[in-house]
Write a protein that binds this DNA or RNA. Structure first.
Lengths: 241, 241
DNA sequence: ACTAGGTTTCGAACACGTTCAAAACCTTTC
DNA sequence: GAAAGGTTTTGAACGTGTTCGAAACCTAGT
């Protein structure tokens, strides 16, 4: 891979990198816990940094010592999603080798993990959608989470009894991740009871995706598969000039 | 429809509805003009409401009398995009009946119209991505712009010499609009010289879309086409419970 | 001309995200 | 234990989006 990792700031005094002392780690946790609770109870906008700090028993300035902005407090939620989904998938992947079931399960697992935060997830993904924002799913900062997610999909495919065409094999995990991104985008806007519409979307699209994957080896479709793979490679990462 | 439209405030004294007096309309224009200029020069974040007001020669409070938030000042830009694109397409559609050319031209027209605002478009689309935001492309408030855009694509198809399968005919304009939304999303994140990567994306995907449309009538693909159309109908508008 | 009722304009005041210089605290070294 | 040097914590202060009550302005009716 030629990914131009730009030397990740070795000597940065950022307390976000790793826990220096146990105590500071505890403070950090208090703050993020207070924040997530308040976000759930009052929504993102309704929660002030003063309230977060007070609820965590620290000063405002201290909260900013650990998190450089209000938005950054959300990374905690973000990380949680990915790990929760992965955890749920371990069991799931052991239980079935059917591609569609695995895909469906993985998406539903994400949904379950995200449910409690639905209200403020809108605010989150919106700001995350900003190009320069470190929370953007495409950004350098969230590449660990992204890579983990893509790896999950690679495993999903690997353990399923489907034969993917050569052209698409390498790219499919990334494509499925993009597909998930689309589902999430829909979910964010979904205000139906129990996010029923998103579930509907999943129930309907999983078979379609599954069918597409199978079709991708068909002679008439093959050129499309190849072009798709090429494209993803070509455009990977719009932010890099 | 059971959409619980909460009686759209018939007697609302909102000056946004229509121009009451010529003078007030002039003031409104001054403000939006000043805002767009400053946005271009200083970026969105770099522009304060105080600066906008001062540059328009009015008070801060007055600016808020016309626009209920800083974000709302952006609707002007939004509207401009759609009309500019439509204008460019009149000529274009007269010139060619080839589906791919027309599609490519329409997308490039949008790109040209949007180019000067690329920097702050990120901020715009990000906040617009928020579910409850009136600037959201799915919201009630921007349904005129959306409908206009979809109509443009309907015309694009209508005047092209392609035969679209029955299952997809009614839904295709909406699908193309979604496709454009995807391109825009990519563009927003594209910081390459002259947004070259977005142009690359267009050059590569237009033939693919074109091919897909042609393939959609194939017996093996037909079920997929039908499912797609069904899905769009089923899920249209995630915000309505 | 004067008044009444609506529309438009004003700018001080407010709330909240964020910054910063100084203090408190902790660990290590002598 | 005292000093030195780093880490953590504090809260007052700042900038900016937004609100609000009051003033200025306009139009129509008498």
């Amino acid at each position: 891979m030629t990914t131009p990792e730009p030397t990740p700031d070795a000597a940065a005094p950022d307390p976000a990198d790793g826990p220096r002392t146990p105590k500071s780690e505890r403070t950090r946790q208090q703050i993020v816990a207070a924040a997530l609770t308040l976000f759930r109870e009052q929504g993102y906008q309704g929660t002030t940094m003063r309230a977060v700090a007070a609820s965590a028993g620290v000063s405002v300035g201290n909260a900013y010592y650990y998190f450089s902005s209000k938005e950054e407090l959300i990374q905690g939620f973000y990380d949680q999603m990915v790990t929760d989904q992965a955890a749920a998938c371990v069991e799931l992947f052991a239980a079935s080798t059917d591609f569609a079931s695995r895909l469906r399960g993985a998406l539903l697992a994400w949904l379950d993990a995200a449910e409690p935060y639905h209200e403020f997830a809108g605010r989150f993904f919106a700001t995350a959608a900003q190009p320069d924002n470190p929370l953007s799913p495409f950004s350098q900062a969230s590449s660990p989470a992204r890579d983990a997610s893509i790896a999950l999909y690679r495993e999903l495919i690997g353990g399923a009894r489907v034969t993917v065409g050569d052209e698409l094999a390498a790219t499919l995990p990334e494509l499925l991740w993009l597909y998930q991104l689309g589902v999430v985008l829909y979910w964010v806007h979904d205000s139906s009871e129990g996010t029923a519409r998103t579930r509907l979307l999943i129930e309907h699209t999983v078979p379609m995706v599954s069918r597409l994957v199978r079709l991708s080896r068909l002679p008439v479709i093959r050129p499309l598969s190849r072009q798709t793979a090429e494209l993803v490679g070509l455009l990977r990462g719009p932010r890099a000039g």
